[in-house]
Write a protein that binds this DNA or RNA. Sequence first.
DNA 1: CTTAAGATTGACAATCATTTTCAACCCAGG
DNA 2: CCTGGGTTGAAAATGATTGTCAATCTTAAG
Lengths: 149, 149
Amino acid sequence: MPATRKIFREFIARKGLKSTQQREIILDEFLRSGSHLSTEELYLRIRAKHPHIGYATVYRTLKLFAECGIAEPRHFGDGQTRYESTHAQEHHDHLICTGCGAILEFEDPGIEQLQEQVAAQHGFHIERHRLEIYGLCNKCLPSRTEAAQ
Amino acid sequence: MPATRKIFREFIARKGLKSTQQREIILDEFLRSGSHLSTEELYLRIRAKHPHIGYATVYRTLKLFAECGIAEPRHFGDGQTRYESTHAQEHHDHLICTGCGAILEFEDPGIEQLQEQVAAQHGFHIERHRLEIYGLCNKCLPSRTEAAQ
DNA sequence: CTTAAGATTGACAATCATTTTCAACCCAGG
DNA sequence: CCTGGGTTGAAAATGATTGTCAATCTTAAG
Ligand SMILES: [Mn+2]
Ligand SMILES: [Mn+2]
Ligand SMILES: [Zn+2]
Ligand SMILES: [Zn+2]
């Protein structure tokens, strides 16, 4: 987290941007809050303590976070962009429950490696990827099964 | 393709919907056109020959195609939904070039199997998944490399 | 063939997330 | 302090998609 702050400050400096109260407040709340929050969810949390901060500023700032690499944007099928902090989190992919919306994270070196292999076969240079598996989590599976019988 | 038509007709019948000129025309153009077309792209093609068909009807009809399984919706990061026909196409995933927008398809049984394994470890029941790999295709890689040097 | 109930359509308004505008305002360097 | 230029909040604009609704078409019955 200190590293995260440092990365953002240096990014700001390098780009000739400016360090502002709003950006600090938004970064604080972003790092404090749980992962996979939508822009709106983060905005609402911030507004509780800082009602003067505007919606557009939260949008703009989250894009800056993504640009400098301290946040990853995610798209889980509801029409909203969600962000998660990259600090102390290796790359990972997601299992998304279509029943309750739960999000499980996983990382599978085997899958990652096979992706490299596939890309190589096509002469393709990977910049990033996204693997999302949708289905029912272990809590939702039983209820769905009994509904069907 | 005949199977595709049949599937759609039966779906229409089963649901108590109706077979209309518009739906036939849209299905024709959908099957004739290339894959990964956005709704707008398909609409424009249709409009060339059938200017009376409305935008909303194309949207509605593509959703029907997806509902009965003859089309798969895709999201490649530009904000549009694209559809591809499932006829004569097994499930597959995509390599998307961030340089020229080219879309390469692939299918890797190893990756699919590892996904099953990961899901099983989490007691998760897979309904569907999406794997998208973004990067540079073999045409765009050279130009990017020389620009960087 | 005619009819009627109900599904469908096209034009257009409405949504929803996100972006842009722009005048007022704040930061950093001199 | 001062000033140039980045930043902000409010509101308007955007772009994809969906909802509305009166007119129209389908289909199965009569
Ligand atoms: Mn995550
Ligand atoms: Mn494809
Ligand atoms: Zn669940
Ligand atoms: Zn390319």
